[in-house]
Design a protein around this nucleic acid. Sequence first.
DNA 1: CCAAAAGTGTTAGGGTTACACCCATGT
DNA 2: ACATGGGTGTAACCCTAACACTTTTGG
Lengths: 265, 265
Amino acid sequence: MEKFTYDYPHPAVATDCVVFGFDGRELKVLLIERVIEPFKSMWAFPGGFMRIDETAEECVLRELKEGTGLAIGNVKQLGAFSAVNRDPRERTVSIAFYSLARHADVCGGDDAAKAHWWAIDDVPQLAFDHDYILRQATRRLRQDIHFEPVGFGLLGDTFTMPELQRLYESVLGVRFDRRNFHKKMLQTGILRDAETDAATRFGKRHEMQKLDIDALFGNANDSRHTVAPVAGAAHSERGRKAKRFSFDKENYDRIKKNGGFRLEF
Amino acid sequence: MEKFTYDYPHPAVATDCVVFGFDGRELKVLLIERVIEPFKSMWAFPGGFMRIDETAEECVLRELKEGTGLAIGNVKQLGAFSAVNRDPRERTVSIAFYSLARHADVCGGDDAAKAHWWAIDDVPQLAFDHDYILRQATRRLRQDIHFEPVGFGLLGDTFTMPELQRLYESVLGVRFDRRNFHKKMLQTGILRDAETDAATRFGKRHEMQKLDIDALFGNANDSRHTVAPVAGAAHSERGRKAKRFSFDKENYDRIKKNGGFRLEF
DNA sequence: CCAAAAGTGTTAGGGTTACACCCATGT
DNA sequence: ACATGGGTGTAACCCTAACACTTTTGG
């Protein structure tokens, strides 16, 4: 086997990714059960060793794809974890990231071991220092959600205000008043009325029929279009049907240039 | 020479530290002129390669001491920088940190090359990807200053409200109303009246003389005790003498437990 | 005596919070 | 019908932003 030699000892460099998801009720994390030593049969974040010709970002996206089938484009770096004994095999520095995935996008992956969603409050003891990394990631997510539209990565293309509220409540661990939440969210300017939007895009603002809307977005009775798989399964079918919104990326980019939004909570 | 061999290629791991300082007027950065290739005679952050038996934090503190004489205890990690070609010698991942230093604490260091403070707006083109790292560090500092008492690491043990205001204005690049700034700062609860504090500590609250205060903290005419070296040199001696404050660490820790403070600005 | 710097309080306005009723849907 | 869940507006309060004069000090 080919060998690689250096004048000074080099640590190995790996990446790990904390993938958050949301099922409509609870915040979740994607974990993989380890099939080899060390920490065999324990759960850990997807990740792996960095190749010599890729950046850490490239590495973590590749490992994510290989390990879970997730092909996402956005990861945020949490930082490097460098405790001397964090990996019993050899000295390893891990560059950790976090990302947000729609609950349904996980499709197993190649050597897919077992990738499973765990409720954030029920995660078992993890391999390596991943317990510690998870705490950092959760804290970071809670911070970021005030200033960045992180939540929308966890929902479908369209979503309802109550879904969005449950997401924020899950992440932050608090409860909000419906009306105030609604108001605040609309004030940020990053939401767009999904139905109006769709009608406008198809040039049928005035002729928009209920049937068209159902066809575009799926309604509660139409299982062929589960465009909102996240929340659809989580709450009862009773009660008034909720208005759907979508994330207004164009407007968000404009707002971001002027300093971004801030959600007080 | 001893060699170190691995089955897979390993990148080198280094650390770099962006050290911010404040001279009473402008935000500064501590840079070292490189005396060896690559990037010889260009300026760069203090830092160096990580040893196999130390964490990144330990490494950066050691390098800081060796390179600049700074013996500080608090650094915050910015993250890992892993562009494939950032170091022409070999593939190197750098874990970057930032820290705050009192302007006078830099005393040269061992192999001290030349460590110099640069005004943040006058920094020349830097070695490696340090320009990029500096932008990240500046952005991060601006964020952190809203939630953490970062500013006090840059000032002396005691400081005046105008000094503190100039610091915040330098970091954030804006101007504040004196009265509102004063009010907001006191409201955070992390400031303590330095003169009252000192008098209390010495059990002489009621007998406190002006002379005592001068002896404890130095006054504008006493060059032997330049306890506020940061601002003392920067502004004219004219005008009313300002009240001194200190950072109330005990109270800050208590406040932090309850969610911390937030400076709106 | 004058210029420069620092201390201090009030008011208007915007934003947040608290709060109650009606409507739509499915059982 | 009724239970469940969602949509909507208003009033009190707090916090922020705007604003001017006085005091101290050194020249």
